[in-house]
Simulated scan of single mutants.
Amino acid sequence: MPKATFFNLKEEKKQILIDAAKKEFSRVSLYDASISNILKTAGIPRGSFYQYFEDKEDAFFYLLNEHARERHEHLIANLKKFEGDLFKAISEIFRSTLEHSEDTGQRDFIRNVLLNMNYKIENTFSQYLTEDVTNNRYDDIYDLVDHENLNVSSRKEVFHIMQILTAVTFHNLIHSISNNLSIPDAMAKYQTELRLLQSGLLRTPS
C-alpha cells in the first residue's frame, strides 16, 4: 500500500511516477525490475521513491490492484448489461482484458504479470471475488448474478462457480498471451471451455 505522501501528490506528479513504474514492470518482471530505472524515468531522487512506496513490490502491487479494481468494475457493468448472465459477463471480461493488453502501454505489463504468476499475484487479481462476509465487492457481484439461470442451491455454490470460472479465465489468459494467440483464436478456445462448463461434463443417463 503506497504511503500517504503518494496519495497527497498532485495528479500530474503522481501520474509521472505511475507511468515510470509501469514502464519498468512492462520491460521486465517484478523480480528483475530496477528501482533505479523507475527513478531515472520519473526524474526523482531515490529518497523520494521511499517517501511514496516501501519498495518496488509496493509500487507493483499498487498498479496491479488498480488493474484488478478496473476489471471488477467492468464485471459489475457487464453483469448489468447482460442481465445477470454470469457466463456472458465473464466472457466479456476475458475479451476486454485481451484487448486491454493490446494497448501500447498495457500489453507488456499484463504479459509480465500473467507469465510470472504466483499466489500473491493471483490473490491480488481475485481479491474482489473472495467470499469473506465483510467483502462488499463480492456482495455486489452476488446480488447481480441471475441465480435462476444457474444450477445452484446456495450462496456457497455460487462462490464455487466464480472460483472455477476465475481459474479457467486465468488459464486461458496465460495460454493466449504466452502463445501469442489472436483475440479471435483465444476467444474461440475460451468459449469452448465455457460451453463445456455450461452443459456439464457428464452425459445424462437415458
Rank of each mutant, 00 (worst) to 15 (best):
Lys3Leu: 11
Phe7Asp: 11
Glu12Thr: 10
Glu12Met: 04
Lys13Phe: 02
Lys14Ser: 10
Leu17Asp: 03
Leu17Ser: 02
Leu17Gln: 09
Ile18Phe: 06
Lys22Met: 09
Lys23Trp: 13
Glu24Arg: 10
Glu24Asn: 03
Phe25Cys: 01
Ser26Trp: 06
Ala33Ser: 15
Ala33Asn: 11
Ile35Ser: 08
Asn37Cys: 04
Leu39His: 11
Lys40Arg: 15
Thr41Asp: 13
Ala42Val: 02
Ile44Lys: 14
Pro45Thr: 09
Gly47Lys: 08
Ser48Arg: 15
Ser48Gly: 00
Tyr50Met: 08
Gln51Val: 03
Phe53Val: 07
Phe53Trp: 11
Asp55Cys: 09
Lys56Thr: 01
Glu57Val: 01
Glu57Pro: 00
Asp58Ile: 07
Asp58Tyr: 06
Phe60His: 15
Tyr62Leu: 14
Leu63Asp: 08
Asn65Leu: 05
His67Glu: 11
His67Trp: 09
His67Cys: 04
Ala68Ile: 05
Arg69Thr: 07
Glu70Ser: 07
His74Val: 01
His74Tyr: 09
Leu75Phe: 14
Ile76Lys: 14
Ile76Asn: 04
Ala77Ser: 15
Asn78Ile: 00
Leu79Lys: 10
Phe82Glu: 13
Glu83Gln: 15
Leu86Ile: 13
Ala89Asn: 09
Glu99Pro: 03
Glu99Arg: 13
His100Thr: 11
Ser101Gln: 10
Glu102Gly: 01
Thr104Met: 02
Arg107Asp: 08
Ile110Tyr: 12
Ile110Trp: 04
Asn112Phe: 01
Asn112Leu: 03
Leu114Ala: 08
Asn118Ile: 00
Asn118Leu: 05
Tyr119Ile: 01
Lys120Asn: 12
Ile121Pro: 00
Thr124Ile: 05
Phe125Ala: 05
Ser126Pro: 00
Gln127Lys: 15
Tyr128Ile: 01
Leu129Gln: 10
Thr130Tyr: 10
Asp132Ile: 02
Thr134Met: 09
Asn135Ala: 04
Arg137Val: 02
Arg137Ile: 01
Asp143Phe: 03
Asp143Leu: 11
Leu144Val: 06
Asp146Tyr: 10
Asp146Glu: 14
His147Val: 04
Leu150Phe: 10
Leu150Ser: 09
Arg155Val: 02
Glu157Thr: 07
Val158Glu: 13
His160Val: 00
Met162Glu: 08
Ile164Tyr: 13
Val168Leu: 15
Thr169Tyr: 05
Phe170Ile: 06
Ser176Arg: 04
Ile177Cys: 04
Asn179Met: 05
Ala186Phe: 07
Thr192Phe: 13
Thr192Lys: 15
Arg195Leu: 09
Arg195Pro: 00
Arg195His: 07
Leu197Trp: 05
Leu201Glu: 07
Leu202Phe: 11
Arg203Trp: 05
Thr204Asn: 10
Thr204Phe: 13
Ser206Phe: 12
